[in-house]
């Protein structure tokens, strides 16, 4: 379990190095998908399958939209992937930075600091996070209202921003 956790966390960091080292958006979106998958794995190992499922469905589903955008925009003749010189140099720099910081913070990491002891799981039918998320609907109250309202607000924001009058390329007529 410790080994699996090590691999997952390392994948999380490597995925974000891949995003941050400035490749073309197409490859960066790919890196972000890897990060999301690793995050799901980390959450499952911590005992939160429902939160992990939400991340997987919603986030990766949302990433699909971004993928479509980047596929539309990555029509450049030579998209930069991680094999390119500048991207590789930045990736290596970030990797070195992470390793240096790791040496600073490393120490005292025994086994149970990787994965927490999951002692209550045998006693209950559902995992805690599932009933906890359900708590949002029963006693969430005004926070739920605010979140629903901000989704509506975002709808108007997006409509108003993209309503463009007569300029630009993507337009009716």
């Amino acid at each position: 379990m410790t080994y699996l956790m090590f691999l997952l966390l390392m994948g999380l960091i490597f995925g974000l190095i891949a995003v941050a080292s400035n490749p073309s958006p197409y490859f960066a979106a790919l890196g972000l998908v890897v990060v999301a998958g690793m995050g799901c794995g980390v959450m499952v190992s911590f005992g939160g399958p429902f939160l992990s499922l939400v991340l997987f469905l919603i986030y990766l589903g949302g990433m699909l939209v971004v993928f479509a955008y980047s596929a539309a925009l990555a029509a450049e003749p030579y998209p930069e992937s991680w094999g390119n010189w500048s991207v590789a140099v930045y990736g290596a720099l970030y990797l070195m930075g992470v390793i240096l910081v790791l040496f600073y913070f490393y120490g005292g990491w025994y086994e149970s600091s990787w994965v927490p002891v999951d002692e209550l799981s045998g006693l209950s039918m559902f995992r805690g996070d599932m009933s906890g998320v359900a708590l949002m609907y029963s006693s969430g109250g005004w926070v739920l209202v605010i979140s629903a309202w901000v989704l509506l607000l975002t709808l108007f924001v997006v409509l108003e921003l993209t309503r463009g009058l007569s300029r630009g390329t993507l337009r009716v007529v």
Binding site: V150, L153, F156, L161
Partner: peptide, 9 residues
């Protein structure tokens, strides 16, 4: 966040 979202349009 609500503040930022509302002022952008």
């Amino acid at each position: 966040e609500i503040n930022t979202l509302a002022i952008i349009p």
